[in-house]
Design a protein around this nucleic acid. Structure first.
Lengths: 201, 201
DNA sequence: TACGCATGATTGAACGTTCTGTCAAGTATT
DNA sequence: AATACTTGACAGAACGTTCAATCATGCGTA
């Protein structure tokens, strides 16, 4: 049978699903085994030493959470009118990816109770993205394409502007009821941001 | 003894602490009883029918989560240069309140796995705040104090700009390492927003 | 004042269930 | 026959919850 080929992968997939839906405590070895189509939960212990190890394996397998920024270096000198919408669209693309959605739910839900995970998540994602954006904004200020400002703040402001719309897809469907599309939001938000930082003449 | 007066309150406080730290599944009746200084977990069942009811009681007692907006009606006609920083500061004030922090951790952590709670949270908080802001921005456009734009987007952008800085205090301490203060961020972010929506001459 | 008693509050022990993790025995494949 | 994998049964602990028994307190009655 083709589907029996990778038992480990089967278990990992089921565990990912279960953990992201119910959390670490809420998902049980039995429910994971059931979701994986195993006849006995004991089989999980053949592939993983314990529940915690399975959880970590799930985390690291799906970990990449590809940075939305493809080629940081090449972006540095391109104008913000091009780069910022690109970043925003890449951001919404990952947010709309079902696998990424599950991963975010899992990470955020669990990070609340695992300071170590929160720290990792913060450093790996937030700091890296904000860090790049800060560098980029500073460079654009240098080039005279943006008004001088506190780029730490600018970076936060830019990614932040996208967050409520993203939360609408992940967590609060009620937010989407006014019908604002991602694309429309990108245009307006990026417009406000660029206009707000346009160099004075 | 004064502290023995309100057993129910004692249990609620302990449960709030435990639930917010460990989540619904992670917090046990025994650990809550211990935190409340009870000799026996059984006593909890004198005051609450079961664990779920205790959880709901915690939620509703601490529920208010006071809207950061004091008097919506009076704000509508005041200029954005005044109103927006006020809202932003009120926002950071609640974010820096330890009780609110615990409540947010509890709500966010649990909302990931309780669609009903997520929906309530979305409607009660997000939609209300965004709704008010949208109205306010529309009114200011009407008054000619802001450039015409999609105010659904504008509202999201404004509250969003504050979120990354807020996450730094609640979830990702690593974010604060660059030393940006709330006040500095409010000034820069509000500045970008206002400049970005300044009416064309 | 003294006594019997109702009532709310509290306790330790116990119950049934569910959980993680183990084990010996099995099957298939090489 | 040896190895890799799979299974049902099971041990031990922890879980939420129940229960009978106890305590403290105040009230009515003699």
């Amino acid at each position: 049978m083709a589907e029996e080929l990778d038992r480990r992968g089967q278990i990992l997939d089921a565990a990912f699903e279960e953990f992201s839906m119910k959390g670490f405590k809420g998902a049980t070895i039995k429910s994971i085994a059931g979701a994986a189509g195993l006849q006995s939960p004991a089989l999980i212990y053949w592939y993983f030493p314990d529940k915690e190890a399975l959880f970590n394996a799930v985390l690291t397998t799906h970990a990449p959470l590809r940075g939305a920024i493809e080629d940081p270096a090449s972006m540095m000198d391109r104008p913000p009118e091009e780069v910022l919408p690109e970043i925003a669209r890449a951001y919404f693309a990952t947010v709309n990816n079902p696998v990424s959605q599950r991963m975010m739910k899992l990470l955020v839900g669990e990070a609340m109770r695992r300071p170590g995970l929160a720290d990792m998540l913060g450093k790996a994602t937030a700091v890296r993205v904000l860090g790049f954006l800060k560098e980029y904004l500073s460079r654009q200020v240098e080039l005279g394409r943006l008004r001088p400002h506190d780029t730490r703040s600018g970076a936060r402001a830019f990614v932040g502007m996208l967050i409520p719309q993203a939360m609408g897809t992940i967590l609060f469907p009620a937010l989407r009821e006014d019908g604002l599309t991602d694309e429309a939001h990108v245009e307006t938000a990026v417009g406000i941001f660029l206009e707000g930082l346009r160099p004075k003449v």
